[in-house]
Design a protein around this nucleic acid. Sequence first.
DNA 1: GCGGAATGTAGAT
DNA 2: TCTACCTTCCGCT
Length: 274
Amino acid sequence: MPEGHTIHRLAADHRERFEGREVRATSPQGKFSDGAALVTGRPLATAEAHGKHLFLGFAETGWIHIHLGLFGKVAFGGAPPPPPTDTVRLRLANKAAYMDLRGPTTCALITDEEKQAIHARLGPDPLRPQGEGNDPDTAWRRVSRSRTTIAALLLDQKVVAGVGNVYRAEVLFRHGIDPYTPGKDLTYTQWTAIWADLVDLMREGVRLNRIDTVRPEHTPEAMGRPPRVDDHGGEVYVYRRARQGCHICGGEIRTADLAARNLFWCPGCQQAPR
DNA sequence: GCGGAATGTAGAT
DNA sequence: TCTACCTTCCGCT
């Protein structure tokens, strides 16, 4: 489930298990053998996230830059670790815990300068400390000048870092905004409300390690419907609910391709600006 | 066992 | 706009 909340959660999970303690690093799958050899035996200095990028810091050695892409997964476990399967790109282990990384788009050792370059090309992240350019106004400068649809802008990591296909669909539903609205037609009030909502939703996502977007008054219990959890693990309004009824208006949820991703929305609840 | 799809991105065209 | 890439899981034969 790799949207930004997952990566920030992973950074915290790495700090908790490995920070300040020496790790053994291996690459059973083989594509990161050289990098693993350089960090093994060193302590993890820190771990941080920006959007969907994870950075594991090792003093003197640099950073392991990890991007899970669409398929990547991280699994943690206690000692002793089981024999790794041959798809494990990176295993970190100490006396108490281990971590297995599979299927990432990126797992590479980078320098501090290379890390700075990645930060520079990413937009503000609702999960990073606010201020110093990490704020809704930085994103608004791009959004408010763009003829691109708000649905595409929300997935553009240069505009906002960390939002993925689920948060995009859900935040637009929660604000009643038609996904095809051009960025320049949004009001500043709408944008700051979207940002504030992303901060809340994604923080809750880090805490629970899943995406829940349904307000208390709209849960199945509150609406007198049978309880239900969506198959990606959380409770949502529109994501992957095409051709099902909208929780609020009962109309059909629609789906379409937008910038090669699946878009979901409720035409009844989400209106274009007048 | 095979084919398709999946919460993503970079690079070529 | 397209294609390639990384892995797992589910539904269909």
